[in-house]
């Protein structure tokens, strides 16, 4: 996205909330919705509009793990590590996915795929459960993990 477009969108969002108090988290959420993360460019306009120093904003931003300060990967893989999934071998599934997606060790700097752990969402009938870009898939047995990884890879390269 062009720099100026980023700036415009941020200004637009900031202006909606200008002059109101206690709206900082909403502003962060809206900016993250727009870009997938909160970019560094957002700090100055927010600081100026709400009269909060940029470093203080950043402290708030990084306090909440919900907010990202870097662009998200194109494919987000969520591994459920709840008790049922755990019993049904989710750890091994995760290892297979990581290995196949090239995310183990030093290779996980890629912006294409990211794996993160999620809490139990109650879909235990699907255990072991994997979310691909928010869509639940399951049960992903150990034997099926490799196929899922290949499918994700084709999605990435597409």
């Amino acid at each position: 996205m062009l720099q100026s477009r980023i700036g415009e969108t941020i200004d637009q969002i900031v202006n909606e909330y200008r002059g109101r108090r206690g709206v900082l988290l909403q502003v962060f959420h809206r900016i993250q919705e727009a870009f997938g993360y909160v970019p560094p460019e957002a700090m100055e306009p927010i600081a100026a509009a709400f009269r909060i120093p940029p470093s203080t904003l950043f402290g708030t931003l990084t306090f909440y793990s919900e907010f990202r300060t870097e662009p998200p990967a194109r494919v987000q893989v969520g591994m459920c590590l709840g008790p049922t999934c755990h019993i049904k071998g989710a750890e091994v599934v995760k290892q297979i996915l990581e290995y196949r997606l090239g995310l183990s060790g030093e290779h996980d700097a890629s912006l294409d795929v990211a794996i993160h752990e999620v809490e139990c969402a109650g879909h235990c009938h699907l255990a072991p459960l994997v979310y691909v870009n928010g869509m639940p898939e399951g049960p992903v047995e150990v034997s099926a993990a490799q196929q899922l990884a290949d499918r994700i890879l084709s999605q990435v390269s597409a």
């Binding site: 560094p40 700090m43 120093p53 940029p54 470093s55 904003l57 950043f58 402290g59 990084t62 306090f63 793990s65 300060t69």
Partner: peptide, 13 residues
Amino acid sequence: TYKGPEAKIGTSF
């Protein structure tokens, strides 16, 4: 900035 074991003193970004 950040929290828990990641907590550190920092500046904006």
